[in-house]
Design a protein around this nucleic acid. Structure first.
Length: 489
DNA sequence: CGGCTCTGTCATAAT
DNA sequence: TCATTATGACAGAGC
């Protein structure tokens, strides 16, 4: 979207109405395509998650439970929770693919931890608890919150909310049993829920797997991803848990733990945008790719890098399941490559721990720039990198303006061609008109000539030396009439 | 899979 | 002489 917008703006700059119209059409088509791709991606992701959790036995064609679910002998999902999941209008049941998969497996195998977790987070009950937790967490004890939730729930939901919560917390405890074998599981469901939230909020506690737990209720989405920024940059290389990101839970100060880290992540997100979100794990990769590109280390290195890349892209959909990131992804479908390229210098700057941002390096005036780099103690590599970044950045802008100028001049030339064609037509018409008029004039002149020279004339010299042209008939007369006066030659 | 387009980058000339 | 700008050429990536 962003880049289509830029393209659109460029079109506006160019002042070509046809391009604007085409841009709008293209934009609409791209949006449709992106929506379709998003849908497909979701389905693929679900399938992959399901396959990961329920490994398909190639010989029998049956789904086998994942080792984690096999190892976990604790009750994976209570019947109450199952009934809640399958009877209420949860996103699980509304998704035909997931629903089919779940129901087909329900009778055979218990769902795995991740599956159960994603299901439980899609429960309206849990959503309600989370909302209240978020709004009341700072003031009320959890018991009160539970009571409030229970009282305020709609009647049909209240009936089984406690059971559902028990199932939910049971499943949470199951999940943590896998991830945190040493964790003591509280017996009270509310305590378990609290522990769960704290676990997700705590940067020191990784989630049970690389799964992103998402509740897809549209108005209140809960996303519990785990982001690991793999970069040499000190702020990014830390484990950066994207704890709870939801419309209602996005205020970090309302969460009791890890506000600093959440803020840090959000800062990273804002500063680096999607490109760096997308480069979760690709920071080193890009550098490596660039190194391979510049150093030409050979085919083996390339293969290795491609292998890394494929691993990375395999992880991408999970890492990018956040709605915000996904929206940005969709907005930059055509711009991903550019974003990666833009990222390169950013990544290099981070890798070299440069004290300035790329934007400043490129856009500072010469004096300020020189002063800035002289005021900092930079080694030779950093210094040359800064110079390169500035040169590349300026050259990039120059190339952009150059291309824009070229485009403008092309358009001007086309307009000039059209003008010249029109002028040519006008001249042609004028020429034909002149030819016609010339012909008519010639005809008239011929007529006049014949009229005038129908008679014979003679020259007559007077005494004063003047020569007269006289018709023969008048020359013989002594007294010529007025109209037949002789013409002086 | 080849062709097209876009964009960043480099080399080099011009300012 | 240095920094910046302009531009042709090339390569990589996406479509």
């Amino acid at each position: 979207m962003l880049f289509s917008l830029i393209g659109f703006m460029q079109d506006v700059d160019l002042g070509v109405e046809r391009d604007i119209f085409d841009g709008c059409l293209r934009q609409r088509e791209e949006e449709t395509t992106r929506a379709r791709e998003r849908e497909l991606k979701r389905e693929r992701e679900l399938e992959r998650i399901m396959q990961r959790l329920q490994k398909l036995d190639k010989e029998t064609g049956e789904f086998l439970p994942s080792p984690s679910s096999v190892n976990s002998q604790a009750v994976p999902l209570s019947e109450t929770l199952l009934s809640t999941v399958f009877t209420q209008r949860s996103p699980v049941t509304q998704n035909p693919l997931l629903s089919a998969l779940l129901f087909s497996q329900k009778s055979q195998k218990p769902p795995s931890q991740e599956q159960a977790f994603s299901e439980l987070l899609s429960l309206p009950d849990l959503q309600y608890y989370l909302d209240v937790l978020e709004s009341e967490a700072s003031s009320l004890p959890l018991d009160d919150i539970t009571e409030i939730c229970h009282q305020n729930l709609p009647e049909p939901q209240r009936e089984n909310s406690t059971d559902a919560l028990c199932g939910v917390t049971q499943t949470i405890s199951d999940s943590f049993e896998v991830a945190q074998p040493l964790l003591s599981i509280p017996s009270d469901p509310v305590e378990i829920l609290e522990t769960c939230i704290q676990m997700f909020s705590d940067p020191r506690n990784p989630t049970p797997s690389n799964m992103i737990y998402s509740c897809s209720t549209p108005e209140n989405q809960v996303i519990l991803p785990k982001c690991q920024i793999n970069s040499s940059d000190s702020t990014l290389s830390e484990f950066c848990p994207y704890t709870i990101n939801t419309s209602s839970l996005s205020k970090p100060e309302q969460l009791n733990s890890a506000p600093q880290t959440l803020l840090q992540f959000e800062e990273c997100h804002i500063l680096l945008g999607f490109d760096d979100s997308a480069s979760v794990g690709s920071v080193d990769l890009e550098t490596s790719l660039y190194a391979a590109d510049t150093l030409s280390n050979g085919q083996s290195d390339k293969d290795e890098l491609e292998s890394i890349l494929s691993d990375y892209t395999d992880l991408l959909p999970l890492s990018l399941h956040s709605e915000a990131v996904e929206a940005t992804l969709c907005e930059t479908v055509t711009g991903v490559a550019e974003v990666r390229r833009v990222c390169r210098d950013e990544q290099r700057a981070q890798a070299m721990s440069l004290p300035f941002g790329v934007h400043d390096i490129i856009n500072l005036p010469v004096e300020a720039f020189s002063e800035a780099i002289s005021s900092c103690k930079l080694n030779h590599t950093q210094h040359s990198l800064i110079r390169d970044i500035r040169r590349r950045g300026k050259n990039k802008m120059a190339a952009q303006s150059c291309r824009k100028r070229k485009m403008n001049s092309l358009i001007d030339l086309e307009e000039e061609i059209e003008d010249l064609k029109r002028e040519k037509e006008q001249i042609k018409e004028e020429n034909e008109k002149n030819t016609r008029e010339l012909h008519e004039t010639k005809v008239k002149l011929r007529k006049l000539y014949h009229e005038v020279f129908r008679q014979e004339y003679k020259l007559q010299h007077s005494t004063d030396g003047t020569v007269y042209l006289l018709p023969c008939r008048t020359a013989d007369k002594t007294n010529t009439p007025t109209e037949d006066l002789p013409i002086a030659v």
